[in-house]
């Protein structure tokens, strides 16, 4: 009997190694070890080249707290994220609402709005750089006032350009999630609400939105995360310019490490960014989850 149990134990270990082993190994090697190494690196003066480094206590943290450019870029990222998250979610929801009203052509519209999501951010950024600096400037010369100056050449409009592209890029994705949410609202609830006189905006505000709160939770979570991580479009559309005025925090961290070659400080800033994003995401999920109701 005891022998049997031992055999079963050994068999289970083998099963685990065989079935879960590969997944656990790649996960550990790529994510877990890197994450732990990342924390470790914040206490060292690693220079990016050699294998040797010294432990230097909290001096990277002190440097990170004194790094004005980092905090400026973080503040800018907060503004950017706020704008992108609010505008994208509102637009995506309204599009989804419109497309679920039963008009013809829904499939074509849906497929077109989703198109930017098929293409990588760097490529989209290059596309829009061409549009902003060649096409819009030409339109400006022909009397379209808002395009009189190249948007990418002054700080405020360049920042706005980043927001515009991010909204354009992400709205189609969130639209899909909102559509799935709206379609799942039970027909009887909608009919009863309409009979009770909840139409138009009232219907959206009091019936549809409360019932699709799970979609709202997912969409805000995803848009917050992607806004704080934005790098690709930032790189290819403005490259942080003019004069570092549109540098978002992900780009700042990258440049601190790979251009200024201050890997320790860069990693410390990356870790601070992680803690902030984690805190915001968890709070957001708790807050919106609380709003979820049963139909």
């Amino acid at each position: 009997m005891k022998q049997n149990k031992k055999n079963k134990g050994a068999k289970n270990v083998l099963m685990f190694l065989l079935y879960a082993g590969p997944a656990v190994i790649v996960f550990t090697a790529v994510i877990l070890i890197a994450f732990i190494n990342g924390i470790q690196l914040t206490f060292t003066d690693w220079n990016g080249l050699t294998d040797e480094y010294q432990y230097i206590g909290f001096s990277n943290y002190a440097d990170a707290f004194r790094d004005a450019l980092f905090w400026e870029s973080l503040l800018r990222t907060f503004k950017y994220a706020f704008g992108v998250v609010v505008i994208t979610n509102v637009i995506a929801f309204l599009i989804a609402f419109g497309l679920t009203r039963g008009y013809k052509g829904q499939g074509l519209f849906r497929a077109s709005f989703f198109t930017p999501n098929l293409i990588g951010g760097v490529v989209l950024g290059i596309v829009w750089k061409f549009v902003f600096s060649e096409v819009f400037v030409q339109l400006g010369k022909r009397g379209i006032g808002i395009f009189k100056n190249n948007w990418l050449s002054s700080p405020d409009t360049a920042f706005l350009a980043l927001v515009v592209v991010a909204v354009w890029q992400m709205a189609g994705y969130l639209m899909l999630i909102y559509m799935a949410g709206i379609i799942s609202v039970p027909k009887e609830v909608q009919e009863a609400a309409l009979l009770d006189g909840a139409i138009g905006l009232k219907n959206i505000r009091h019936i549809v939105v409360p019932l699709i709160m799970p979609s709202v939770t997912i969409c805000t979570f995803m848009s917050i995360k992607s806004a704080f991580m934005a790098y690709d479009v930032n790189l290819s559309l403005t490259n942080g310019g003019p004069f570092q005025s549109t540098e978002l925090v992900a780009m700042r961290v990258f440049n601190k490490a790979f251009q200024a070659e201050q890997y320790g400080v860069g990693q410390t800033e990356a870790l601070i960014l992680f803690l902030i994003v984690a805190a915001i995401s968890v709070t957001q999920v708790i807050l919106t989850k609380r709003q979820e109701v049963e139909a």
Partner: peptide
């Protein structure tokens, strides 16, 4: 781990 952004593990 799904909450960890790429930037946090990029340097290591």
């Amino acid at each position: 781990s799904m909450i960890i952004p790429f930037q946090t593990i990029m340097i290591p």
